[in-house]
Design a protein around this nucleic acid. Structure first.
Lengths: 240, 240
DNA sequence: TAGTGGTCTAGACCACGCA
DNA sequence: GCGTGGTCTAGACCACTAA
């Protein structure tokens, strides 16, 4: 394992366990370097990670201070979004009803979003996801067929993301998302128990791999009272 | 100026101008180090920045490649949210109508969100923001009075964020946001021209300083058809 | 002035992908 | 085996803060 990660993990642990208390100073970098028997650069790299996570705050001449809000910044809400419902809703029973599943060729808008040609086929999946047997979200997803190979209905009923990561070995690099409110369409009314006046929250996203190539475009729709979208972002002063 | 930032800026320029083309390799780190007459560590730090911005993708043994989507990742949508409407809507005329402005003591929920005591006063501001004289967003904002000092109505009519950053010298560290859809309330109907059935997009946020201390809690409400919220996030493989 | 974190160096070794 | 990027070192100098 990498030294700077081990050190970051160790310090993070000590913050969470209260050994380094909120609003107090961490030992200085020279001391930490001696403690862990590494060079000061390595200690700094470890503390860089903690700063990017929003756990500590540094200032020249002042030392490194544990932030008061170190605790409510731990949620990792950014990362969790990629793991799909199955992981987000641990300990709940997730099931899926497939409304439509087909292979087709992308229209112009989709070609742009997924950076593909009109001859590159895509899978289209329209699913209703249920949490503990109650309707939760409607998902329309387009996968690039040449990347997400051999998608079959039995996978769709379970966790697509588990398949993508574990079977296909795709590494996710990031996503671009757009969130808006909308008025319900006929599917929302039929499957999500919306009335004609019930607002809907829609999350639209393009997910791409670590090498920058997109593989998914999707739209997820929830009734307004069943979901919020949360974001915790830290401006990385060190890197801008 | 810092060397690694200058180098990052220079390479970013060359990507944007097309000197380093999408999907092509950058020169290797040793060569770049010679070109810029710095050590390899410094070059690597510059490339780290570009990788975090989603412009390039690196792999051991393979080199550093300019990403295809280098262009649509430039929007900086994360950062722009802190600058307030006045900066987001450049070249448009932003005005504000103050609906309510008072000083009060926080209830329990607000005390938790802003990490203050019940005896710490807060400013409450309820504004309608207009873009080119058309109603755009309703903002309810609570500022911690001990941090955002001397807030007076003449400031509220213009740009609060300009005041906070330039006059008070506050440095923003990050924000925690929650986005949801909602049904309109009486203010939405009165000021945003909503009907009783028009969905509303609400962005709720706590903004904190670089030292981790929050200074603002706010709720912004838009009619569903006037605003989307966009996010571009990159999983920073180097740092997790 | 002493002590802190930030930057930078010159060089070493390692892990990985490819021929 | 060669060339790539990733990690790590030991030490230097600088910028900032507080006493």
């Amino acid at each position: 394992m990498l030294k700077y990660k081990l050190i970051a993990d160790d310090i993070r642990h000590k913050i969470q366990s209260g050994e380094y208390k909120a609003d107090n100073l961490l030992p200085d970098q020279v001391t930490l370097a001696e403690q862990y028997e590494v060079s000061r650069m390595t200690v700094k790299k470890a503390i860089d990670i903690l700063a990017m996570e929003g756990l500590v705050y540094r200032k020249r001449g002042m030392g490194t201070r544990v932030l008061k809000n170190a605790l409510w910044n731990q949620n990792d809400s950014l990362a969790i979004e990629y793991q799909g419902l199955t992981v987000q809703m641990k300990h709940k029973e997730i099931t899926s009803k497939i409304i439509e599943f087909k292979i087709e060729f992308p229209d112009e808008a989709l070609q742009q979003l997924l950076m593909i040609k009109e001859t590159d086929a895509v899978y289209f999946v329209h699913r209703l996801r249920l949490v503990d047997k109650k309707a939760y979200v409607l998902e329309k997803t387009y996968f690039v067929a040449s990347i997400v190979e051999k998608l079959v209905p039995s996978i769709l009923e379970k966790s697509i993301y588990r398949y993508i990561k574990e079977e296909l070995g795709l590494v996710i690099g990031g996503a671009y998302r757009k969130i808006h409110a909308d008025i319900p369409d006929k599917y929302d009314i039929e499957y999500l128990n919306c009335k004609k006046t019930t607002p809907v929250l829609e999350v639209e996203q393009v997910v791409y791999q670590q090498n920058g190539i997109p593989f998914e475009y999707s739209k997820s729709r929830n009734r307004f009272d069943t979901r919020s979208y949360t974001i915790s972002d830290v401006i990385k002063d060190a890197y801008k």
